[in-house]
Design a protein around this nucleic acid. Sequence first.
DNA 1: AGGGGGATTCCCATGAATTGGAGAATATTG
DNA 2: CAATATTCTCCAATTCATGGGAATCCCCCT
Lengths: 224, 224
Amino acid sequence: MNWRILIVDDEPSLTALLRRQFTDCGYTAFVANNSSEALKLLKEQPDLILLDINMPGKDGLAFCREIRESVSCPILFLTARVMEQDKLAGFRDGGDDYITKPFSLAELTARVEAHLRREQRNKVSSARLTSHGLTADLSARELSFEGKPIAFTRKEFDIIELLWTNSSQVFDRERIYESVWGLEANGNNSVVKEHIRKIRAKLLEVTSWDFIETIWGIGYKWKK
Amino acid sequence: MNWRILIVDDEPSLTALLRRQFTDCGYTAFVANNSSEALKLLKEQPDLILLDINMPGKDGLAFCREIRESVSCPILFLTARVMEQDKLAGFRDGGDDYITKPFSLAELTARVEAHLRREQRNKVSSARLTSHGLTADLSARELSFEGKPIAFTRKEFDIIELLWTNSSQVFDRERIYESVWGLEANGNNSVVKEHIRKIRAKLLEVTSWDFIETIWGIGYKWKK
DNA sequence: AGGGGGATTCCCATGAATTGGAGAATATTG
DNA sequence: CAATATTCTCCAATTCATGGGAATCCCCCT
């Protein structure tokens, strides 16, 4: 991913170092020496901003407050101010991180990457499972086959979730009972049996494929 | 917003302090003393995790690697390891922040809030939602259908906001109660039930469409 | 290859759990 | 103080979970 980073600092040797570093990482770096230059460079739509606080003209905190509403990318303060109240001010004014000079270049890079990784992650949708055309959204408790939703009851869904998220693992009926019901199994296996049957019936009707494999004498597992 | 925070540390005095602090902030705090307890508490769907590294049993880094795929909330390491290579390892294994002990409680809180603020911001790109002709202006706390405003009470609106901004995610009644009321649910779910009913009645009358889906035995979710 | 025994699947009636709804009591707001 | 919002209680309707027994299947042994 080719990220765009805006570096705002009035110290040329530092901005040169940072530009070099992030260019090496494969990012595109923009450098501003003060707030008004930075304001112009916002049109480049950076994915992340590294912002000094002490600068001639408008300082970093004021700049951050000003743009925070309209700019949603992470803003990382990079400053020599180490006092706790300064840090708190940085976060209060909308900063996402606060790194004190002198800093380790490796740590700075790691922090930048962590923020970008999170941005990336938040753009894509929630976790899904897919196999043989069957899709599960666990937090929505939905299963669908080629777009068609299939309705499952609570226990049925719990069992599917257990087997699917641990596919390639064989569960005996006691194990399933204990996981899904949260109780100790007292040799009462017919319940699990019946639910497995219903799951199979529903899936088979729609998908014409048996997702559950019976391991004879042992239990069941989700076919990959 | 009533955030849910999972605190994972084997030092009881620290977890007590943190729980106290975040409870005072109005959050719901869950405490785990080790990785296996933490794993179980993931079902509470925390919005943020504070994770120690040195713990008996599986350490924090391993735990983070293990859950990172399936858990999307920010994970903040909170540890006595101050070496740069430890910090880098923390970020490499999927951490979103790395805070070294001893830490300032104020700074920790500020960092936690910064991460949550960002999550919130990323959740809904705008404060305006629309589906099936229904429009919500969250900051104005107004809903309208084809221009006609619909009046909702405070709690009703809170519930709609919770479900809508996390649409397609299923919430059980306890979870709704905890999020909207900010209190622990003591088995008294009928309040939530009643509010859901009122919301449905108001929406149905105007829009002739049921926006809330009942997941039998689990809870409710907002239909997409 | 065929038969035996046990494990598994299938069918279905029953009872338990969950939800939706009415109405009244209590709290909160203006 | 009136109006509105919130909470509580109870009941009917619905859906789901359960367990037993018959039918079937699978594996092993001869």
